[in-house]
Simulated assay, not measured.
Amino acid sequence: MSELEGEKVRLEAVIADTPEPSALRLHPRLPARCRVLIEDLAGALNAPEVRREATASLQALISEVRMVPDGTAPGGHQLELVGELAGLMALGQP
């Protein structure tokens, strides 16, 4: 137990000495670009000749779907997708 306590103290010191990472800054047009890519993806998912493959690819990229309460959204909730953002965006590329 004392060995674990020592490790805890050491890790707390590492955390205290580690600077806070800078805030992630996203490009201001990123939401609009994502919207276009998702709309393109929705069209691809509805094409009968690729529907099965596209659906499987999309399912592999999404690890979690969260329903988030939002009084201003239709139905009072928004869906939040969690997963491989870079992979999702790449699906919209030709």
Rank of each mutant, 00 (worst) to 15 (best):
M1N: 07
S2W: 06
L4M: 13
E5K: 12
G6M: 12
G6T: 10
K8Q: 06
V9Y: 03
V9E: 14
L11V: 08
E12R: 13
A13L: 15
V14P: 01
I15Y: 09
A16M: 05
A16L: 11
D17W: 08
T18H: 05
P19W: 06
P21I: 11
P21Q: 05
P21E: 06
S22I: 03
A23Q: 12
A23W: 03
L24M: 10
L24K: 09
R25G: 04
H27T: 01
H27L: 04
P28L: 06
R29D: 14
P31C: 08
A32K: 10
R33I: 15
R33T: 06
R33V: 12
C34R: 02
L37H: 07
I38A: 13
D40C: 00
D40S: 05
L41R: 04
L41C: 02
L41F: 02
A42H: 01
A44H: 07
L45P: 00
L45M: 15
A47F: 02
E49F: 00
R51D: 03
E53I: 10
A54H: 10
T55W: 02
T55V: 04
A56M: 10
S57A: 13
L58Y: 12
L61C: 06
E64N: 10
E64S: 06
M67P: 01
M67D: 02
V68W: 00
V68L: 14
P69Y: 00
D70C: 04
D70E: 15
D70T: 04
T72P: 03
A73F: 08
P74G: 00
G75H: 01
H77D: 00
H77K: 07
L79A: 08
L79H: 01
L79R: 03
E80R: 12
V82M: 09
G83P: 02
G83R: 05
G83N: 00
E84V: 01
L85W: 03
L85N: 04
L88S: 03
L88V: 10
M89R: 06
M89S: 06
A90H: 06
A90I: 01
L91H: 03
G92C: 05
P94K: 06
